[in-house]
Amino acid sequence: MRELAYVRATSPDEAVAAVAGDPQARFLGGGTNLVDHLKLGIATPGTLVDVSRLALAEVEGTADGLRVGAGVRNSDLAAHPVVRRDFPVLARSLLAGASGQIRNQATTAGNLLQRTRCVYFQDASTPCNKREPGSGCSAVGGHDRYNAVLGASEACVTVHPSDLAVGLAVLDAEVVVLGPDGERRLPYDELHRLPGHHPEHDTTLAHGELVTAVELRRSPVARRSTYEKVRERASYAFALVSVAAGLELADDGTVSDVRVAWGGVAHKPWRARVVEDALRGEPLEEERVRDVVAEELRDATTTTGTAGKPAMLAGVTARALTRLAAPGPQVEEAGR
């Protein structure tokens, strides 16, 4: 591990100035991903700028929703009463990720900015275009069980590992970002990117830009939402695939609004817009969901290890939506 300077920032502006002015500097939040990368030798910053003690750890109500500070711990966000009532997909996606200990340490922004768990990215002895641009991709033709099936490129076939990132994709979220020239906001969908020729960039953020908050708007689909995850063991494992879904039904029982996003599928949370557009205005029927999932996956590329993902996506998307549509406690709550 190379020598490391450590600076504790006393304000967001100071933190941004410290990182933006030094290509070798990185923000340090909860550290659950970055500290591991230091040990593995796959992150080699010269300076860490600690933002974990900045006043960014509040969940505040806004006129139409919530403002979640970048430093709010995953466990605190999942336990927040308004999140549990108005944004269940947020609580469910957070609780599906990592372990109790890690959720106590990991922050909102750090969760969204965590890096891929591709075994080759994490092994400094193998080629990886994301870690070392131009070196090649070991996952093509290698261990492929966790690879992408949509939106991949020749340069990179990995997926985004976060559950929270998928949950947020079905909410009307905005990301608040502080840079050297001040604050900007971007629609959540524009935070993460597909790999293209530059898999070294997971997001559209520039070096030195600091996520300070994520803002959410209340809505009927947010209120009636959930998250389902398929993994190789019951807990504490990354997703093979996952589904975030939100649903609003009209009085006649047809779908008036629906949101679906998939994890374990692409380099960014995959918003299944073909599925959403096809289901709007129709009664919700399981077979129809399976059919439109197949349409969304028309351009999917699978290999031996990922051959099961389309079937998993069809099954778990249908299950999530039909459970949301079923009359039960959730419906009573949604109408309350």
Binding site: G30, G31, G100, Q101, N104
Partner: peptide, 15 residues
């Protein structure tokens, strides 16, 4: 760590 269960291997002492 400050009352909450945490992984001591994933945090730097200086932090």
């Amino acid at each position: 760590l400050d009352g909450r269960r945490s992984l001591s291997c994933l945090t730097l002492a200086v932090a």
